[in-house]
C-alpha cells in the first residue's frame, strides 16, 4: 500500500511543528525586521522632509536678506551717483568760474599790457615820426618841423569859425607844446590868439614832451589841440585790428 496512515499522521504533526517553528524563527522575525526598517526609513524621510522644509525656510530668509541688501545697495549706488553728479557739476561750475575769473584777469592784464604797449608805442612812434620828419625836412627842405607845426597851427587857428572859439577870454590862457617855442614863435602865437580873442590876457607857455610836435590851446573853458597823436592813433587802430584778427584765428597744428 502506497499510503501509511501513521506516517500521514506523523507528517501532519511534523508539518504543524514546522509551521510553528518557522513562524517563530522566520516569518515573524523577518516581518518585524522589515517593519522596523520601513519605520526607520519613514523616520529618515520625515526627518529629511523636516530638514528640507527648514532649509527652504532658511533659503527664503536669506533670499529676503539678499533682496534687502540688493535694494540697499541700489539705493546707495543711486545716492552715490547723484552725489557724484552733483559734485561733478559743482566742480565743473567752480572750474568754469575759476576759468572765467582767470580769463577775465588775463583779459584785464592783456588789456592793460596792450594799453601800456600802445601808450608807449604812441609816444615812441610819435617821437620817431617827429624825429624822422624833422630830420627829413632839415636835410631835404632846410626847415624845422617845429616851425612848420607852429605855422600850420596858426593857419588853422585863423580858419576857425567864431562859434568854435571860446566866448569869454581866459584870464590866463595856456599854450602847451611838445617842443620848446622860440620867442618869435611865442609872439606869433600871442598875436594870432589876440586877434581872434580880443580880451585875451598874457599867454602862459608850457612844454610837455609827450605832445611831441603837437600844440594845445586852453582858453575860455575850451581846449584846441593839434598834434601827431591823431595820425599815430590811426596806426595804433590798424595794429589793434591786426592783433584782434590774429587772436581770433584758429591755431594751426
Amino acid at each position: 500500500m502506497l499510503i501509511d496512515w501513521f506516517t500521514v499522521g506523523a507528517q501532519v504533526v511534523n508539518f504543524l511543528i514546522l509551521l510553528v517553528l518557522l513562524k517563530i524563527f522566520l516569518f515573524d522575525r523577518i516581518k518585524q525586521a522589515m517593519d522596523q526598517r520601513e519605520n526607520n526609513i519613514k523616520e529618515r524621510f520625515d526627518k529629511a522632509a523636516e530638514q528640507k522644509a527648514a532649509a527652504q525656510e532658511t533659503q527664503k530668509t536669506f533670499e529676503k536678506k539678499r533682496q534687502s541688501l540688493e535694494d540697499d545697495r541700489d539705493a546707495r549706488l543711486k545716492e552715490a551717483d547723484k552725489e557724484a553728479k552733483e559734485r561733478r557739476d559743482s566742480l565743473i561750475q567752480e572750474a568754469q568760474e575759476e576759468v572765467d575769473g582767470l580769463k577775465k584777469q588775463w583779459r584785464k592784464a592783456l588789456e592793460q599790457e596792450k594799453a601800456s604797449f600802445f601808450d608807449g608805442f604812441q609816444k615812441k612812434a610819435a617821437r620817431l615820426i617827429f624825429d624822422t620828419v624833422e630830420k627829413t625836412l632839415s636835410h631835404l627842405a632846410d626847415t624845422r618841423v617845429q616851425d612848420q607845426a607852429v605855422k600850420k597851427f596858426l593857419s588853422r587857428f585863423e580858419e576857425l569859425d567864431k562859434a568854435d572859439l571860446p566866448q569869454k577870454a581866459e584870464t590866463k590862457p595856456q599854450v602847451t607844446t611838445g617842443f620848446e617855442l622860440s620867442e618869435n614863435q611865442q609872439k606869433s602865437i600871442q598875436k594870432a590868439l589876440s586877434q581872434k580873442l580880443p580880451n585875451l590876457g598874457n599867454i602862459a607857455f608850457e612844454v610837455r614832451p609827450e605832445l611831441v610836435f603837437g600844440i594845445a590851446v586852453a582858453a575860455g573853458g575850451k581846449k584846441m589841440t593839434w598834434h601827431a597823436h591823431d595820425y599815430v592813433g590811426a596806426l595804433e587802430k590798424q595794429m589793434d585790428q591786426a592783433i584782434e584778427r590774429k587772436d581770433h584765428e584758429p591755431e594751426k597744428q
Binding site: A10, L26, I30, A33
Partner: peptide
C-alpha cells in the same frame, strides 16, 4: 519519509534561526 522530513525540518529551523538571530534594521 519521517527521517528525511525531520532532516529537512532541522535544516529549515536551524537555518532560519541562524539567519534571523542577528537581523539588521
Amino acid at each position: 519519509t519521517i527521517v528525511f522530513t525531520w532532516a529537512v525540518m532541522a535544516v529549515l529551523v536551524i537555518g532560519s534561526w541562524l539567519i534571523t538571530r542577528q537581523l539588521s534594521t
